[in-house]
Amino acid sequence: MRLVPNSLHDEVAAQLRERIFAGELTPGTFLDELKLAEQMKISRTPLREALKVLTHEGLVRHEPRRGCFVNEVTEQDLDEIFPVIALLEGRCAFEAAQNASDADIAALEDLHDKLQRHAKAKRINEYYATNFAIHEAIIALAGNRWLAGVIGDLRKIVKLARLQQLHAPGRLEQSLSEHLAVFAALKARDAEGAEAAMRTHLTRQRVALRDLARSQRSRLA
Rank of each mutant, 00 (worst) to 15 (best):
P46H: 13
P46G: 04
L47D: 11
R48T: 07
E49N: 12
L51F: 01
V53R: 10
V53Q: 06
L54K: 11
L54E: 08
H56F: 14
H56T: 13
H56A: 14
E57N: 11
L59E: 05
V60H: 10
V60C: 11
P64Y: 09
P64Q: 11
R66A: 11
C68N: 12
F69N: 15
N71G: 13
E72Y: 03
V73N: 08
T74L: 10
T74F: 11
E75V: 04
Q76V: 12
Q76W: 10
D77M: 09
P83W: 15
I85G: 03
I85F: 01
A86R: 03
A86F: 03
L87V: 07
G90W: 10
G90Q: 13
G90M: 13
G90K: 07
R91G: 07
R91T: 13
A93T: 12
F94P: 05
F94C: 06
E95H: 11
A96L: 14
A96V: 05
Q98K: 15
Q98M: 09
N99W: 13
N99T: 13
N99M: 06
S101V: 08
D102M: 08
A103R: 15
I105E: 07
A106G: 09
L108K: 00
E109I: 00
E109R: 12
E109K: 02
E109H: 06
D110N: 05
D110Q: 06
D110M: 03
H112R: 13
D113G: 00
D113W: 09
D113H: 14
D113N: 02
L115Y: 06
Q116R: 10
R117F: 01
R117S: 02
R117L: 05
R117K: 11
H118R: 14
H118G: 05
A119F: 03
A121F: 03
K122W: 00
R123N: 12
R123K: 13
N125V: 02
E126W: 00
Y127R: 02
Y128M: 00
T130F: 01
